[in-house]
Write a protein that binds this DNA or RNA. Structure first.
Lengths: 340, 340
DNA sequence: TCTTGGCACTCAGTGTGAACGAGTGCCAAT
DNA sequence: ATTGGCACTCGTTCACACTGAGTGCCAAGA
């Protein structure tokens, strides 16, 4: 049986342990929280909680620390999101409103998130796969060198250089440009990439060769989801606060280098809600001592990417969850505005 | 007097200490290096080296470790650059040749450098200040929304969005575009930014308002040296190998978060040569235990930026210097090619 | 039945002191 | 100038006893 008071005890243990990084005993618990019962009673409750696997005793004569299962219950049942302070809200708003483009939004928000939570923050760059093509521009730098510029609805701009075998005239280039935009403007990039196969047929025969070259790099740029795989990381210095270098800090530092790993950590948080993955619940056994708090972002439930924080299981979940949610909302709003 | 054999002893001490991270004694020294003399002789030499301040004894019954001054002598007099292996050369070439744009070059080379040296690598994004304007493109997304695209000789592309008060026609836009390119193409960005002040006078009166708006964002984009201040960092996980968390790792992790600090570390390495700054020689007292190996890069002595590695003073200087130089050369070459 | 005070027990952490040994400095001999 | 020998230093390690936070259990009380 886990009744209300036992939940209170668990909450108190989690809060104290997060604050002190030391096993917490029954006496300190009743002192620091107004539980209204004696240490002996708390001890009985602790015995039950331990029996059920929510807390754990490193050694006989020590206090208790929460297990992953205990944190899980804490997060599911007990954690009321810490509301952001007015100052924090203002900081988020002013910082992110000053961002000039999408990359800037990502870089500013990852920094912000790490500062708000004092954890390591991760922000995935927004995916291009839902974007539509807004415009394609062709600029002749020299008669045989054309800069191809792809402007997406997300505000992202990709450029590629094309070397032509033959010099091209401005009028030919203009016609190809028109044909390309005819074929792709307003179309989702995947479909646009597919449609460009027919581009050489849509122009006059003598323009087929350069059109093919242009179509080729455009297709490549559209299917190049490199930016889907990019993530920004900030706040690694915050790891310094945590002891236990070998089990907690080192594996995390190594994981942070591997963006593939980070993407997997972020990846499954598809929905609107804030997801918490605690210790061993994650996919990497080396990261058994770290937790991940993530959520998706994007305008109107449109999943453009994920962001979150990672840190030791011993982390401030309510605070992290609140910050993650707040930043995700602002980012979504900003991206939405830029999109109109 | 510091004669040749004493220099040999110093070299041996540095090499052993770098390899083992432990104070090195006279006996181990003659065993591991074929010095051809007895431990007692080495001890005499060590006494002199200590007197002169090149090495130091943490406590009476311990071996010696090099001082910053000792590392300095080692680097200046003794370090012959470790030549890159054929495999390493090939890795550099194949990786960097696959880069598609400038940002990609930076990101790949920082990663490469950290892997080659097993240190923390830093690469500054190339400065824009020497770039010239290659082309300016104006694209009407809607009649009142114009995407301004600035293409620089370095291959970098900056985009900005302009909201117009009045709808604009395609012909007006084309005329403004022509005027802008007339004024800026081929001109260094600083001069181009200055020249754009006169843009409204160069177009027909009814186009002055939109021209002013365009000139305004272009000037801002040209003088926005944000990218001069950007740096890429990789290899923080390599710090995990070093003990001495508080004096060596933590301050460095904190410094790595502050890009301003990084830029200052990189900053003074203007020339072509590889610069080594050892421990206290640097500008930050908190980084007294870390050394920086940097060099500039850019085609034909044109300083576009700096790159290098940072790590504890106890680092493999010859290897780091060789890797830094090799990567800088490749980066310079690639940027040069893209620039033609 | 739940709560509480009391009490014996456990065991990590701390401190002390002795033994150990890596490494040195010095000196006399070569 | 180099070398073997030797006494000396001092950090490290280990054993051992001590301390005290914290527990589990039990009997008494609400």
């Amino acid at each position: 049986m886990v009744d209300d008071r036992k939940l209170d005890v668990l909450r108190a243990i989690v809060e104290d342990y997060v604050a002190t990084e030391e096993p917490v005993g029954s006496k300190a618990l009743v002192e620091r929280h107004g539980l209204g019962v004696s240490p002996a009673t708390v001890r009985n409750d602790m015995a039950v909680l331990e029996e059920e696997g929510y807390i754990h005793q490193p050694h006989t004569s020590a206090g208790r620390i929460p297990t992953d299962k205990g944190y899980r219950l804490f997060v599911d049942k007990l954690a009321t999101l810490k509301p952001m302070s007015a100052a924090e809200r203002r900081a988020i708003a002013t910082l992110l409103d000053g961002a000039v483009d999408v990359d800037d939004v990502v870089q500013k928000s990852v920094r912000l998130l790490s500062q708000l939570t004092h954890q390591v923050a991760i922000v995935q760059y927004p995916t291009l796969s839902h974007s539509t093509v807004r415009h394609v521009e062709l600029v002749a730098l020299t008669p045989t060198r054309v800069m191809v510029i792809l402007i997406l609805s997300s505000g992202r701009v990709e450029q590629r250089l094309v070397e032509l075998d033959e010099p091209i005239t401005d009028t030919d280039l203009a016609e190809i440009r028109a044909a390309v935009n005819q074929a792709s403007a307003g179309v989702q990039i995947a479909a646009a990439a597919a449609g460009l196969v027919d581009l050489p047929d849509a122009v006059r025969p003598e323009q087929a060769a350069p059109a093919r070259a242009v179509a080729s790099v455009l297709t490549e740029a559209m299917s190049d989801h490199r930016s889907d795989e990019r993530v920004a990381v900030s706040g690694t210095a915050n790891l310094a606060r945590y002891g236990d270098f070998d089990t907690a800090v080192r594996p995390l530092l190594e994981a942070l280098e591997e963006h593939v790993v980070l993407l997997k950590l972020l990846g499954e948080s598809g929905s609107d809600a804030v997801t918490v993955r605690i210790g061993h619940e994650g996919p990497y056994s080396e990261l058994a001592a770290t937790s991940v708090v993530t959520t998706g972002y994007g305008p109107q439930q449109f999943h453009l990417g994920s962001l979150g924080v990672v840190g030791p299981t011993r982390m401030d979940y309510p605070g992290s969850m609140a910050a993650v949610r707040a930043v995700a909302r602002y980012v979504s709003r900003i991206l939405d505005e830029g999109n109109q």
